[in-house]
Design a binder for these strands. Sequence first.
DNA 1: ATGACTCTTCATAAGAGA
Length: 259
Amino acid sequence: MRIATWNVNSITARLPRLLAWLESSGTDVLCVQETKCAESAFPYEPLRELGYEAAVNATGRWNGVALLSKAGLTDITVGLPGGPDYDGGQEPRAIGATCGPVRLWSVYVPNGREIGHPHYDYKLRWLEALRTTVAQDAAGERPFAVLGDFNVAPTDEDVWDRAAFDGLTHVTDLEREALAALRDSGLSDVMPRPLKYDRPFTYWDYRELGFPKNRGMRIDLVYGNEPFAKSVDDAYVDREERKGKGASDHAPVVVDLEV
DNA sequence: ATGACTCTTCATAAGAGA
Protein backbone atom coordinates (compact mmCIF):
# COMPACT_ATOMS: atom_id res chain seq x y z
CA MET A 1 0.00 0.00 0.00
CA ARG A 2 1.43 3.34 -1.06
CA ILE A 3 0.62 6.35 1.13
CA ALA A 4 1.89 9.88 0.53
CA THR A 5 1.63 13.43 1.84
CA TRP A 6 1.93 16.54 -0.30
CA ASN A 7 1.41 20.25 0.30
CA VAL A 8 0.19 21.15 -3.19
CA ASN A 9 -0.05 24.96 -2.71
CA SER A 10 -3.50 25.20 -4.36
CA ILE A 11 -5.18 22.06 -5.60
CA THR A 12 -6.70 24.09 -8.44
CA ALA A 13 -3.37 25.39 -9.70
CA ARG A 14 -1.78 21.97 -9.19
CA LEU A 15 -4.57 19.82 -10.61
CA PRO A 16 -2.87 18.73 -13.87
CA ARG A 17 0.31 17.82 -12.04
CA LEU A 18 -1.62 16.22 -9.17
CA LEU A 19 -3.63 13.96 -11.47
CA ALA A 20 -0.56 12.96 -13.47
CA TRP A 21 1.42 12.27 -10.30
CA LEU A 22 -1.33 10.17 -8.71
CA GLU A 23 -1.37 7.96 -11.79
CA SER A 24 2.38 7.70 -12.34
CA SER A 25 3.19 7.08 -8.68
CA GLY A 26 0.44 4.56 -8.06
CA THR A 27 -0.46 6.20 -4.77
CA ASP A 28 -3.34 4.57 -2.89
CA VAL A 29 -3.90 7.30 -0.31
CA LEU A 30 -2.71 10.92 -0.53
CA CYS A 31 -2.83 13.39 2.34
CA VAL A 32 -3.16 16.85 0.79
CA GLN A 33 -2.47 20.24 2.35
CA GLU A 34 -3.04 23.84 1.25
CA THR A 35 -5.90 23.10 -1.11
CA LYS A 36 -6.63 26.85 -1.11
CA CYS A 37 -10.09 26.41 -2.54
CA ALA A 38 -13.61 26.32 -1.15
CA GLU A 39 -15.04 22.88 -0.47
CA SER A 40 -17.72 23.63 -3.07
CA ALA A 41 -15.01 24.14 -5.71
CA PHE A 42 -13.02 21.01 -4.82
CA PRO A 43 -12.17 18.90 -7.91
CA TYR A 44 -14.05 15.80 -6.77
CA GLU A 45 -14.95 14.69 -10.28
CA PRO A 46 -11.53 14.36 -11.98
CA LEU A 47 -10.26 12.59 -8.86
CA ARG A 48 -13.23 10.23 -8.85
CA GLU A 49 -12.49 9.40 -12.49
CA LEU A 50 -9.05 8.21 -11.35
CA GLY A 51 -10.69 6.08 -8.69
CA TYR A 52 -10.20 8.30 -5.64
CA GLU A 53 -12.75 9.12 -3.00
CA ALA A 54 -12.09 12.43 -1.27
CA ALA A 55 -12.67 13.75 2.24
CA VAL A 56 -12.23 17.51 2.42
CA ASN A 57 -11.89 20.15 5.11
CA ALA A 58 -11.64 23.48 3.30
CA THR A 59 -13.27 26.89 3.41
CA GLY A 60 -11.66 29.05 0.74
CA ARG A 61 -8.65 31.19 0.13
CA TRP A 62 -6.37 29.89 2.88
CA ASN A 63 -5.33 26.51 4.26
CA GLY A 64 -7.51 23.47 3.45
CA VAL A 65 -6.70 19.76 3.75
CA ALA A 66 -7.96 16.56 2.16
CA LEU A 67 -7.59 12.81 2.05
CA LEU A 68 -7.74 11.08 -1.34
CA SER A 69 -8.17 7.34 -1.18
CA LYS A 70 -8.50 4.31 -3.42
CA ALA A 71 -8.41 2.09 -0.34
CA GLY A 72 -11.62 3.09 1.39
CA LEU A 73 -12.59 6.23 3.27
CA THR A 74 -14.67 5.83 6.41
CA ASP A 75 -15.06 7.27 9.90
CA ILE A 76 -14.14 10.74 8.71
CA THR A 77 -13.29 13.33 11.35
CA VAL A 78 -13.34 16.93 10.10
CA GLY A 79 -11.06 19.20 12.11
CA LEU A 80 -9.43 18.74 15.50
CA PRO A 81 -12.08 18.21 18.16
CA GLY A 82 -11.53 20.97 20.71
CA GLY A 83 -8.86 22.56 18.57
CA PRO A 84 -7.93 26.22 19.15
CA ASP A 85 -9.51 29.16 17.35
CA TYR A 86 -7.62 31.80 15.42
CA ASP A 87 -9.25 35.15 14.66
CA GLY A 88 -12.54 33.92 16.05
CA GLY A 89 -12.81 30.50 14.43
CA GLN A 90 -11.27 27.14 13.66
CA GLU A 91 -9.27 26.98 10.45
CA PRO A 92 -9.45 23.97 8.11
CA ARG A 93 -6.15 22.32 8.98
CA ALA A 94 -6.92 18.71 9.83
CA ILE A 95 -8.94 15.77 8.60
CA GLY A 96 -8.81 12.16 9.73
CA ALA A 97 -10.19 8.98 8.21
CA THR A 98 -9.82 5.23 8.09
CA CYS A 99 -8.48 4.00 4.75
CA GLY A 100 -8.75 0.24 4.68
CA PRO A 101 -6.31 -1.17 7.24
CA VAL A 102 -4.87 2.16 8.37
CA ARG A 103 -6.13 5.26 10.13
CA LEU A 104 -4.61 8.55 8.94
CA TRP A 105 -4.68 12.27 9.58
CA SER A 106 -3.79 14.89 7.00
CA VAL A 107 -2.62 18.01 8.84
CA TYR A 108 -1.46 21.51 7.98
CA VAL A 109 0.09 22.92 11.13
CA PRO A 110 -0.14 26.73 11.49
CA ASN A 111 2.92 28.57 10.22
CA GLY A 112 3.48 30.77 13.29
CA ARG A 113 4.69 33.75 11.27
CA GLU A 114 7.01 35.31 13.85
CA ILE A 115 8.20 34.37 17.32
CA GLY A 116 5.84 36.11 19.74
CA HIS A 117 3.15 36.66 17.09
CA PRO A 118 -0.32 35.45 18.13
CA HIS A 119 -0.03 32.92 15.29
CA TYR A 120 3.06 31.42 16.97
CA ASP A 121 1.16 30.78 20.21
CA TYR A 122 -1.72 29.43 18.14
CA LYS A 123 0.73 27.03 16.46
CA LEU A 124 1.87 25.68 19.83
CA ARG A 125 -1.70 25.28 21.08
CA TRP A 126 -2.68 23.61 17.82
CA LEU A 127 0.10 21.03 18.16
CA GLU A 128 -1.03 20.33 21.72
CA ALA A 129 -4.61 19.80 20.51
CA LEU A 130 -3.30 17.45 17.82
CA ARG A 131 -1.43 15.45 20.47
CA THR A 132 -4.58 15.13 22.55
CA THR A 133 -6.69 14.15 19.57
CA VAL A 134 -4.44 11.36 18.30
CA ALA A 135 -3.23 9.95 21.64
CA GLN A 136 -5.64 7.02 21.71
CA ASP A 137 -5.00 5.94 18.09
CA ALA A 138 -1.25 6.46 18.54
CA ALA A 139 -1.23 3.99 21.40
CA GLY A 140 -3.47 1.50 19.59
CA GLU A 141 -2.82 -1.74 17.71
CA ARG A 142 -4.04 -0.53 14.34
CA PRO A 143 -1.49 1.08 11.97
CA PHE A 144 -1.91 4.80 12.46
CA ALA A 145 -0.08 7.90 11.23
CA VAL A 146 -0.29 11.66 11.15
CA LEU A 147 1.03 12.99 7.85
CA GLY A 148 1.35 16.52 6.62
CA ASP A 149 3.05 19.87 6.62
CA PHE A 150 4.11 20.32 10.24
CA ASN A 151 5.85 23.65 9.64
CA VAL A 152 8.57 22.60 12.10
CA ALA A 153 12.02 21.28 11.23
CA PRO A 154 12.58 18.61 13.91
CA THR A 155 16.36 19.11 14.13
CA ASP A 156 19.02 21.51 12.86
CA GLU A 157 19.89 18.86 10.25
CA ASP A 158 16.45 19.42 8.76
CA VAL A 159 17.29 22.88 7.42
CA TRP A 160 19.88 23.77 4.79
CA ASP A 161 21.62 26.28 7.07
CA ARG A 162 20.67 26.65 10.71
CA ALA A 163 22.23 30.12 10.89
CA ALA A 164 19.84 31.31 8.20
CA PHE A 165 16.95 30.60 10.60
CA ASP A 166 18.23 32.49 13.63
CA GLY A 167 15.32 34.36 15.15
CA LEU A 168 12.78 32.70 12.86
CA THR A 169 10.02 30.19 13.42
CA HIS A 170 10.17 26.49 12.43
CA VAL A 171 13.38 25.78 14.40
CA THR A 172 12.66 27.09 17.91
CA ASP A 173 12.85 24.98 21.05
CA LEU A 174 9.17 25.46 21.86
CA GLU A 175 8.07 24.23 18.43
CA ARG A 176 10.41 21.24 18.64
CA GLU A 177 9.23 20.45 22.17
CA ALA A 178 5.63 20.44 20.94
CA LEU A 179 6.63 17.97 18.23
CA ALA A 180 8.52 15.85 20.76
CA ALA A 181 5.41 15.73 22.97
CA LEU A 182 3.45 14.44 19.98
CA ARG A 183 6.07 11.71 19.36
CA ASP A 184 5.99 10.81 23.04
CA SER A 185 2.35 9.83 22.64
CA GLY A 186 3.61 6.75 20.77
CA LEU A 187 4.64 8.02 17.35
CA SER A 188 7.97 7.91 15.55
CA ASP A 189 9.37 9.98 12.70
CA VAL A 190 9.35 7.87 9.51
CA MET A 191 12.48 9.20 7.83
CA PRO A 192 12.32 9.27 4.02
CA ARG A 193 15.27 8.72 1.69
CA PRO A 194 16.42 11.69 -0.34
CA LEU A 195 16.62 10.87 -4.05
CA LYS A 196 19.51 13.33 -4.39
CA TYR A 197 21.97 14.97 -1.98
CA ASP A 198 22.36 13.85 1.61
CA ARG A 199 19.27 15.12 3.37
CA PRO A 200 15.56 14.49 2.63
CA PHE A 201 14.33 18.04 2.34
CA THR A 202 10.66 18.40 1.40
CA TYR A 203 10.31 22.15 0.90
CA TRP A 204 12.35 24.69 -1.06
CA ASP A 205 11.46 28.38 -1.26
CA TYR A 206 10.38 29.55 -4.71
CA ARG A 207 12.66 32.58 -4.36
CA GLU A 208 16.37 33.00 -4.96
CA LEU A 209 16.87 29.66 -6.68
CA GLY A 210 16.08 27.74 -3.51
CA PHE A 211 15.58 24.43 -5.27
CA PRO A 212 18.59 24.50 -7.63
CA LYS A 213 20.80 25.49 -4.68
CA ASN A 214 19.13 22.83 -2.48
CA ARG A 215 18.30 25.38 0.19
CA GLY A 216 15.59 23.20 1.63
CA MET A 217 13.81 22.17 4.79
CA ARG A 218 12.31 18.89 6.01
CA ILE A 219 8.97 20.03 7.38
CA ASP A 220 6.59 17.55 5.73
CA LEU A 221 6.57 14.62 8.12
CA VAL A 222 5.13 11.18 8.66
CA TYR A 223 4.57 10.35 12.32
CA GLY A 224 3.49 6.73 12.67
CA ASN A 225 2.68 4.52 15.62
CA GLU A 226 4.58 1.28 16.16
CA PRO A 227 2.32 -0.97 14.04
CA PHE A 228 2.62 1.59 11.23
CA ALA A 229 6.39 2.08 11.54
CA LYS A 230 6.99 -1.68 11.61
CA SER A 231 5.07 -2.04 8.33
CA VAL A 232 7.14 0.55 6.43
CA ASP A 233 8.96 -1.01 3.46
CA ASP A 234 10.35 2.19 2.00
CA ALA A 235 9.97 5.95 2.25
CA TYR A 236 11.35 8.71 0.03
CA VAL A 237 10.90 12.32 -1.04
CA ASP A 238 9.85 12.58 -4.68
CA ARG A 239 11.95 15.65 -5.49
CA GLU A 240 11.24 15.17 -9.20
CA GLU A 241 7.84 16.70 -8.53
CA ARG A 242 9.48 19.93 -7.32
CA LYS A 243 11.03 20.45 -10.76
CA GLY A 244 9.84 22.49 -13.69
CA LYS A 245 7.09 24.99 -14.38
CA GLY A 246 3.98 24.83 -12.26
CA ALA A 247 5.52 22.92 -9.34
CA SER A 248 4.41 23.28 -5.74
CA ASP A 249 7.11 24.53 -3.38
CA HIS A 250 6.78 21.21 -1.50
CA ALA A 251 7.58 17.72 -2.80
CA PRO A 252 5.53 14.63 -1.95
CA VAL A 253 6.74 12.27 0.76
CA VAL A 254 5.94 8.69 -0.23
CA VAL A 255 5.65 5.74 2.17
CA ASP A 256 5.27 2.10 1.13
CA LEU A 257 3.54 -0.04 3.71
CA GLU A 258 3.38 -3.79 3.93
CA VAL A 259 -0.27 -4.09 4.96
C1' DA B 1 25.94 37.83 -17.53
C1' DT B 2 21.10 37.75 -16.62
C1' DG B 3 17.57 38.17 -12.99
C1' DA B 4 16.18 36.40 -9.12
C1' DC B 5 8.34 33.38 -6.28
C1' DT B 6 3.63 31.84 -6.41
C1' DC B 7 -0.90 31.54 -4.99
C1' DT B 8 -5.58 33.64 -4.03
C1' DT B 9 -9.20 37.25 -4.12
C1' DC B 10 -15.28 41.42 -2.05
C1' DA B 11 -8.51 41.53 -7.57
C1' DT B 12 -5.38 44.92 -10.81
C1' DA B 13 -2.47 45.45 -4.70
C1' DA B 14 -2.07 42.87 -0.65
C1' DG B 15 -1.67 39.00 2.43
C1' DA B 16 0.32 34.65 3.23
C1' DG B 17 3.60 31.35 2.81
C1' DA B 18 8.40 29.68 5.57
